[in-house]
Structure formats: structure tokens, C-alpha cells
Design a protein around this nucleic acid. Structure first.
Ligand SMILES: [Mn+2]
Ligand SMILES: [Mn+2]
Ligand SMILES: [Zn+2]
Ligand SMILES: [Zn+2]
Lengths: 149, 149
DNA sequence: ACAATTATGAAAATGAATTGCAATTTCATA
DNA sequence: TATGAAATTGCAATTCATTTTCATAATTGT
């Protein structure tokens, strides 16, 4: 099964174990969110969804994202803006972010050496890490080029 | 000159080059902030200041912090809470943070190896880094002990 | 002292996040 | 298929930190 299918299956499971019901609207929002696999603000997802299903409200989108976050299928974070963003959490991999200050592009990366060194730091302070975030802000490849013209 | 003195001098300079005037109230806020050298929310600093100088308003504290941020003497960041925090920027060192989810303690650290690896990552993506943040969330030493009891 | 400009306090405005509530829909059971 | 408890939805209202407005006070150069 592909990533999308897995996520949907997990969501279905969560619904059944929590006595939640199915609804076309929420399903549509969840589908679109997982399919798109991007870092959405509530508003952004709402506007995209609205184009295809104008009867779906902001509240429904908001609550769908909150629910996904609660059941571990989305992660919520703030990338230096005033609004928070949600992104699908795939079965596995943790990753960190490069964030372009100019075009807003968000690039994901993983670096085992850094992860390892973080553990060293934590050990040094007797600190038990449960989560971390590493974000590099600046100019993406494309925007660097544009700046030079 | 010590850190505190340097910061105050820099602030004085900024005022003169920007046509700002001096005020006891703002000076008091700035002094207290730099002296304390912690990660304050506007409200936290306001309450501390209010104990000593009840006539100083929230607005003044808010504006003082914004001003310090603008002239590079404070940095504003969000550590996973709903509110932003300000901390003095010392002439020197960049650092990252360990944040205790239980008691809120914020521990600073520096790790050159990690900084180096970040540059490698950025180079890989042709990304020009202008700032970064690395935060490790979890339980500090003290809180780990408490949890075990 | 005067004029010009900045600083201040209190209140209002802003805006994202969240919630209350009445209406609607789902779904297990009869 | 009909019923009813429970979940979902849309909309409006609320919350809460942040930011701005505006009238008044303080600062600074002349
Ligand atoms: Mn991501
Ligand atoms: Mn710090
Ligand atoms: Zn870019
Ligand atoms: Zn702690």
C-alpha cells in the first residue's frame, strides 16, 4: 500500500476506535491534505478545498487538521510566521526544514550526523529529548538566482 | 566594559542615530531586561517591572522590546508556546536551546559540529542560510528526577 | 519659555485560533 | 425503513496575544 493509502487506513482505524463517524466533507479534506503532501496553513487548505467543494467550511477544515494532528497523522508547526502549518506525518521518517524567506518554499532534509550530535548535546545536560526542530532560514536555489539579476 | 554596559551603550547609540529621546521608563525596562538576561514574554517582563515601577505600562514594555528587537539587541522567538519570547542578544555568541516541557526552563547550548553540518546541508541544496533555529524539547535534569518519584 | 518631536497609557483594533450552539447527518438497532 | 443517540457541520461569537490609535505628557534644541 502506498503512503496515501496507509494514512487513510490509519485514519479510518482511528475513527473506529474513537467512535467517530464518517463524513464526505471531512474525508475530502483529509484526502486532499494527504494527497497534496505539503505544509498547509488552515486557510490555505481551506481555499484549495473550497475551489472543489465550496460547501465545505473553514471550521470543517480546521477541525479535520486538528483531528489529524491529534491522531498523529499531521504535525503542526510554526515556521517563523504568525500562523501555524500542518503537514502529513508519514509512517516513518523524521525530517527537518529549509525555509525560503523569499518564496516560502519549504525543503525537507534528514541528516543522521546532526541527529546523533543532538543526542550528545542532550546527554551532556541530562536532558531527555522528546522532540526537536531544526530549521534553516534563507534563500532557496531559485531565489538566489533571482536576487543576482 | 561588561555585556550589560555594552548593550546599553549600543542602545544609546541607536537612539541618537534614530532621533529617539530618552525616557526613564523605557530605560528602566531595557535595563531590567538586559540585566536579567532571560527569555521573557512581554507579559512576564511587564509583571516583573510592575513590581518595581507600577506606573510603567504594558505598552511601554511591549514597545521597548520591539525596539530592542529592531535594533538587534533582542531576538524574538517562539518556543512552541502561543506567545513569543524575547532574549537579549549579546555582542557575541549564537546559541540554540533545550526547552523543558514541564517547568519551562530554557537551556542554551552551542555545538560547532552541528553548525558545521548545517552548512553542509545548506550547500547540498544550494541554499543560502541567513538564520537558523535548533530546539530540543523534553525534560530537563530536574524534571526527569521528579518524574521518577 | 517655546515649538517640535517623541514617549506614554489606556483603549480599541486586529487576526488567528478556538468554541458554543442549533441544524444536519451518520449509523446501529428496532 | 424508521428511530434516536451521537457525531458532524456552518456560522457566529469568543478568546487572547499582538499591534495600533489617539489624546496627553515628557524630552530636547533654540
Ligand atoms: Mn516537513
Ligand atoms: Mn537563548
Ligand atoms: Zn525561494
Ligand atoms: Zn524542567
Amino acid at each position: 500500500m502506498n503512503k496515501h493509502g496507509e494514512a487513510i487506513a490509519q485514519f479510518t482505524k482511528h475513527k473506529s476506535t474513537h467512535g467517530l463517524k464518517s463524513s464526505d466533507k471531512r474525508s475530502f479534506v483529509v484526502d486532499h491534505f494527504i494527497q497534496a503532501d505539503r505544509h498547509f496553513t488552515v486557510e490555505e487548505l481551506y481555499f484549495e478545498v473550497k475551489k472543489l467543494r465550496p460547501e465545505i467550511s473553514y471550521s470543517t477544515v480546521y477541525r479535520a487538521l486538528k483531528l489529524l494532528a491529534k491522531c498523529g497523522l499531521a504535525s503542526e508547526s510554526m515556521f517563523g510566521e504568525a500562523v501555524s502549518r500542518y503537514e502529513p506525518v508519514h509512517s516513518s521518517a523524521h525530517h527537518d526544514h529549509l525555509i525560503c524567506n523569499r518564496c516560502g518554499r519549504i525543503i525537507e532534509f534528514e541528516n543522521d550526523k546532526i541527529e546523533k550530535l543532538q543526542k550528545d548535546v542532550a546527554r551532556n545536560y541530562d536532558f531527555l529529548v522528546s522532540a526537536h526542530r531544526l530549521e534553516l532560514y534563507g534563500l532557496c536555489k531559485k531565489c538566489r538566482r533571482k536576487k543576482n539579476r
